[in-house]
Amino acid sequence: KCTICLSMLEDGEDVRRLPCMHLFHQLCVDQWLAMSKKCPICR
């Protein structure tokens, strides 16, 4: 589950894993990281 948009991560979707190993939709986390340089879970 992407904790930014709260939707399930589905096969075939573009996802991004951060160095902390948390996984998000690529678009969601890219937009998040443009505003904050910290993982939305770890922050």
Rank of each mutant, 00 (worst) to 15 (best):
V29W: 09
L33F: 08
M8F: 14
H25Y: 00
D30M: 06
K38T: 08
C2Q: 05
C28A: 01
D11K: 06
P40S: 02
C28L: 00
K1S: 06
P19T: 04
L33D: 08
F24P: 02
E10C: 05
L9H: 04
Q26C: 07
T3K: 07
H25E: 01
V15G: 08
C2G: 00
S7Y: 10
K38D: 15
R17T: 09
C5G: 00
L18K: 02
C28P: 01
D14K: 13
E13A: 11
I4H: 07
G12Y: 06
T3F: 07
C5K: 03
M35Q: 14
L33C: 10
R16I: 15
C42P: 04
S7I: 06
F24C: 11
L27W: 09
C28F: 02
M35I: 05
L6V: 05
D11P: 06
K37A: 10
R17W: 06
L33S: 10
V29P: 03
E10I: 14
D11Y: 05
P40K: 01
V15A: 11
K38L: 13
R16K: 15
R43P: 15
G12E: 11
G12K: 08
E10F: 07
C20W: 00
C28M: 01
C2W: 00
D14H: 07
K1A: 05
K38Y: 04
M8R: 13
M8Q: 14
L27K: 15
S36E: 15
D11R: 07
R16G: 14
R16N: 07
C2T: 01
L27P: 12
V15R: 08
V29F: 09
L23G: 11
L18R: 03
L18P: 04
A34I: 09
M21H: 13
L6P: 02
G12H: 07
R43T: 13
E10R: 11
F24D: 04
M8W: 11
C2F: 05
Q26R: 13
C39M: 04
S36N: 15
G12T: 11
H22R: 00
V29H: 10
R16A: 13
D14Q: 13
M21F: 15
P19M: 02
D30K: 09
S36L: 08
C42E: 03
R17V: 10
W32A: 13
S7W: 02
G12A: 08
H25V: 00
T3S: 10
M21Y: 07
M8N: 13
K37I: 05
S36D: 15
L9P: 03
E10V: 10
C20E: 01
F24H: 05
K37P: 04
S7R: 15
D14S: 12
C42W: 01
E13H: 05
L23E: 14
K38M: 11
C39Q: 02
C5F: 01
I4Y: 09
D14P: 09
L33A: 08
I4R: 02
Q26A: 13
F24V: 10
K38A: 11
G12V: 06
P40A: 02
S7K: 15
F24W: 03
D30Y: 04
M8V: 11
P19G: 11
R43H: 15
M8A: 14
C42T: 04
C39D: 05
E13T: 11
F24L: 09
C20F: 00
Q31T: 11
R16F: 08
K37G: 11
P19Q: 06
M21K: 15
D14N: 13
S36W: 12
C42N: 02
L23K: 15
L33H: 08
L27Q: 14
M35F: 07
K1E: 09
M8C: 12
E10T: 14
M21G: 14
K38R: 06
W32D: 12
E10N: 12
L9M: 14
G12L: 05
V29D: 04
M8H: 08
P19K: 05
E10Q: 10
L9K: 02
C42L: 02
F24Q: 03
K1R: 07
R17I: 02
C42H: 03
D11G: 09
D30L: 05
L18M: 11
Q31Y: 15
C39S: 05
I41P: 02
G12D: 12
C28K: 01
E10M: 11
G12S: 08
D14W: 03
K38I: 07
I41A: 13
C39I: 00
K1T: 08
C28I: 01
C28S: 03
S7D: 06
C20Y: 15
R43A: 15
F24T: 09
R43D: 15
A34K: 12
L23T: 14
D14M: 07
G12F: 05
Q26V: 09
A34C: 05
M35G: 11
C39V: 02
D30I: 06
C20L: 00
C42K: 02
H25S: 00
W32F: 08
D30G: 09
V29I: 13
E13K: 14
R43M: 15
I4L: 08
C20P: 00
S36T: 11
D30P: 05
L23I: 08
L18F: 10
Q31M: 07
W32S: 11
D14F: 05
E10W: 05
K37N: 02
L18E: 04
K37C: 02
M35P: 09
C39N: 05
L27A: 15
E13D: 14
A34R: 09
E13N: 14
K37F: 05
P40V: 01
L18A: 03
V29T: 07
C5N: 02
V29S: 09
T3P: 05
C20Q: 01
C20R: 01
K37H: 10
C42I: 02
K38P: 12
L6N: 15
I4S: 02
W32E: 12
I41R: 11
G12R: 07
C28Y: 02
L27Y: 04
K1D: 07
I4C: 04
K1I: 10
C5S: 01
R16H: 10
Q31I: 05
V29R: 06
D30V: 06
R16Q: 11
R17S: 10
